[in-house]
Simulated scan of single mutants.
Amino acid sequence: MKDFSTELTFKTSRSSGAGGQNVNKVETSVTVMWKVSASEFFSEEEKELISQKLKNRINLDGILQITVSDSRTQLQNRKIAVERITELVNKSLIKPKPRKSTKPSKAQIEKRLDTKKKLSAKKDNRRFRPDL
């Protein structure tokens, strides 16, 4: 887990929505921005992996940005934003283990075929056969 918080830039704005006077006059909403390609904390492979996994969140300039307006204070929103962006980036660096394909056991195959035969027999018995 890497801490790249020194590379983050912040922008504040007024939060939207209801909230009365505080919302109208105080810039509590925080947008955190991070240029992925300019990072010195990650290798080129890691940057590529981050860009690939977070491509829907990265804009055309190569900047990953997250806006937080959960709290009433700018400081708290800033802290939440840093936590979210670091969590997001660190999650994108995790490589999933490759799936190993397995064959079903003989018992499973036998059970499946047996169940199919029973169901087939049940449906066959439901058929209406007029006496000949």
Rank of each mutant, 00 (worst) to 15 (best):
K2W: 01
S5C: 08
F10V: 04
R14D: 10
S15Q: 07
G17V: 03
Q21H: 11
N22A: 13
V23D: 07
N24F: 02
K25Y: 02
V26L: 03
E27N: 13
E27C: 02
T28S: 15
S29T: 08
S29W: 00
T31E: 12
V36L: 06
V36T: 03
E40K: 10
E40I: 03
F41M: 00
F42R: 02
F42K: 02
F42E: 03
S43Q: 00
S43K: 03
E45P: 01
K47D: 05
E48C: 07
S51L: 06
K55R: 07
N56D: 14
N56Y: 03
R57F: 08
R57A: 09
R57D: 09
D61G: 03
I63C: 10
I63H: 08
I63T: 12
I63A: 11
L64K: 04
I66S: 11
V68Q: 06
S69D: 15
S71C: 02
T73E: 09
T73S: 14
K79A: 11
T86N: 14
E87Y: 03
L88I: 08
N90Y: 00
N90F: 03
K91I: 02
S92K: 02
I94N: 13
I94L: 15
K95D: 08
P96L: 03
P96T: 00
T102D: 12
K103Y: 11
P104R: 01
A107C: 04
I109N: 13
I109R: 14
T115D: 11
K116F: 05
K118P: 09
K118T: 14
K118G: 05
L119K: 08
A121D: 14
D124W: 01
N125C: 05
R126Q: 14
R127I: 08
L132R: 05
